[in-house]
Amino acid sequence: METHKAKRVEITIELVMQSRLTEALQAADVTGYTIVPVLGGSGRSGDWSRSGQVSRGQGMVQVICIIRPERLDKLLEAAFSVVERHIGVVSVTDCDVLRAERF
């Protein structure tokens, strides 16, 4: 089956910044993304886990976008404007998709 090259961008960010990030992505014409909850982890700011949260400010989510390679820079610029000062990780990997017209 024929596949097409695409970029998969994973942005792990604080829950309080989620709507700001998705608004910035939509403003950059990135309308397709998936949001998944993050159960826990460890990083420069220490350990944390979703079950131990009392404040909305402490949780994390992951926003996953799959886009055509030529649209990557615009997406990253939009994402960076939001995540620049905040805890989080942005990673980009290559992937293949079946239906290129959807991305």
């Binding site: 604080e14 309080v16 910044m17 700001r20 700011s45 220490g46 404040s55 400010g57 402490q58 805890i87």
Partner: peptide, 15 residues
């Protein structure tokens, strides 16, 4: 307040 601080003052240490 912690939620507001994470948005307004992300450099402050939540711990």
């Amino acid at each position: 307040v912690p939620a507001a601080m994470r948005v307004a003052l992300p450099e402050a240490n939540p711990s």
